[in-house]
Design a protein around this nucleic acid. Structure first.
Lengths: 156, 156
DNA sequence: TCCATTTCTTAATATACATTAATGCATAGG
DNA sequence: CCTATGCATTAATGTATATTAAGAAATGGA
């Protein structure tokens, strides 16, 4: 368990890595993501201050996700087994975020997804480019842009 | 912690219930799902033998999900806090299933989603109607039917 | 057994989002 | 300060999936 400084764009973990760590974000912003066969990135989660970013492979399995830094960050790196987050309650909370996200994907339109993102990450909205938000939501940047200008016209 | 017999179609938990329980499935088949504003069901997970079905609300928050039985089942009902699943490893495994599902929703076509379902639930495929599989995958029954007959023609 | 209901499939049409492309703006780094 | 790069937006076109509708097969309850 050690504190490390991470520069923007630095990669902390790659798909296929063994013994993936868990990262507690003290300051800055991480993200985790996959790259599909077509080379397209899909952002799995953002990790602003106070969040934990980790792949959910067991400690002895290869990771599914890349993890990198979107801003210069200070993070605490820990072994997955125990050092961090021995707390079931925290696990339950993270499960719930995932549960809501799955339900969102099953039923929500582009603009509803965007609103979900804003409520999940109120402090991240202004810190990441919109194409990354789109990636997180599973839509294209063009569709997100269209949905937002659509919403502006009709009321709000 | 007690063992209960559940009849097909019996509802174990409703959206908004407090003190939701966790259900370990000894035999039979449960499912959890939401109902959206339009009255449409979205299946969150299936629970065949050996699986645990629960909402990820904390013990003191209202539940998001309905849980009911798709077959006559025998289940062990437990308090969420501790009685069942004190095991971090099991949590990690379930997280990983959710992680894969989220990634699936971000990038997979109808037929790829179907293949994901078959590999996640090899023993469930023949036991649930196809419209429930479609609901789990976030597509319509018509789209699933079309995707499958598409696949049959082209090769397999 | 019989009838009502559920389930699956197919087809026609509609629609949300993807793709492609072009433009202008902002930004970072030399 | 300049320039290359990244970013956001808009528009035209394409496509996968949704919607609607109908009919046939399977299922289950009385």
């Amino acid at each position: 368990m050690k504190k490390i400084n991470v520069k923007k764009k630095e990669i902390l973990q790659r798909t296929g890595d063994l013994r993936g760590k868990a990262y507690f974000v003290e300051s800055g912003l991480l993200r985790s993501y996959t790259i599909d066969e077509k080379g397209k990135e899909h952002i799995f989660m953002f990790g602003p201050e106070g969040w934990i970013v980790a792949d959910y492979a067991s400690a002895d399995e290869p990771c599914d996700l890349y993890i990198d830094a979107l801003e210069d960050s200070v993070v605490i790196q820990a072994e997955k087994d125990g050092e961090i987050e021995p707390d079931l309650k925290k696990f339950v909370k993270r499960m719930r975020v995932l549960q809501k996200r799955v339900i969102m994907f099953m039923s929500a339109s582009a603009i509803e997804r965007y609103e979900f993102f804003v409520s999940t990450y109120p402090n991240v909205t202004q810190r990441v480019p919109q194409h990354m938000v789109a990636s997180y939501l599973g839509i294209t940047p063009e569709a997100l842009s269209a949905a937002k200008s659509q919403r502006l016209k009709s009321g709000k």
